[in-house]
């Protein structure tokens, strides 16, 4: 079974779209999600910047965002998407709901990873006169490094999966191709190829993540 050159071109374009969506979203998600995760940890009662009110509000917003199924979420944030990128359709428009959904997800995973750092280590840094900024940058984040790498890996894989739903607003990408041609038009060969490609990409991402964690653990 060989793909026609037209099908091949479709696949190639879809791959590039997926790559574009996932990479841009990953960067934005990491930039926003990890700081939010840090905020969720350090504002906890008993932590270095404890603030019960802020902790509760942020926690609630994160949960609320995560409660909404992604296809509905895409529609729900259309006004915001229009405001930010001046359009609500296409690959670029998808980046807004994808980032919003993924960064709160990453924030929770970051929170879990940072909570693995024993509190005694934070206290030791405090006892040495370290500032809160130094504790975050030089203690919490480096100590939680393997957990953070895992968190980002899981987030990227989730993003690849979410990006398939982006077809609903003309987002494109591999998942969209599989649904439109493979599912709606019964072109099973396209479906199979996209599914296999997605599996390979996800495996690759997971392997890179695992490798980074292992490299750290060997020290």
């Amino acid at each position: 079974m060989l793909l026609s050159s037209k099908q091949f071109l479709m696949l190639w374009n879809a791959s590039l779209e997926t790559l574009y969506m996932v990479s841009v979203t990953t960067v934005l998600t990491v930039i926003m999600g990890i700081p939010l995760g840090v905020l969720l940890v350090v504002t906890r009662p008993g932590h270095i910047l404890q603030n019960k009110g802020l902790y509760r509000v942020v926690g609630f917003l994160v949960n609320a965002t995560r409660s909404i199924p992604f296809p509905i979420f895409i529609v729900f944030v259309i006004p915001l998407t229009r405001f930010i990128v001046h359009t609500s359709v296409g690959v670029t428009a998808v980046i807004v709901p994808l980032t919003l959904a993924a960064f709160v997800f990453l924030a929770r995973l970051t929170e879990t990873a940072l909570l693995e750092v024993p509190h005694g280590v934070v206290e030791a840094a405090k006892s040495m006169g370290a500032s809160n900024g130094r504790i975050i940058w030089r203690v919490l984040l480096p100590e939680a490094w393997p957990g953070l790498v895992m968190a980002v890996t899981i987030t990227i894989i989730t993003l690849i999966s979410y990006s398939a739903m982006a077809g609903a607003i003309g987002g494109g990408g591999l998942g969209d191709l599989a649904i439109r041609y493979g599912y709606h038009r019964y072109q099973k060969d396209i479906m199979w190829v996209t599914v296999i490609m997605l599996i390979i990409v996800v495996q690759l991402v997971q392997s890179v993540g695992d490798w980074l964690v292992r490299r750290h653990a060997r020290r």
């Binding site: 024993p118 005694g120 280590v121 206290e123 030791a124 006892s127 203690v139 480096p142 100590e143 490094w145």
Partner: peptide
């Protein structure tokens, strides 16, 4: 200076 029961060293 302070030392602790669980040492509290940075594992990284």
């Amino acid at each position: 200076g302070m030392i602790f029961q669980s040492f509290n060293l940075l594992s990284s």
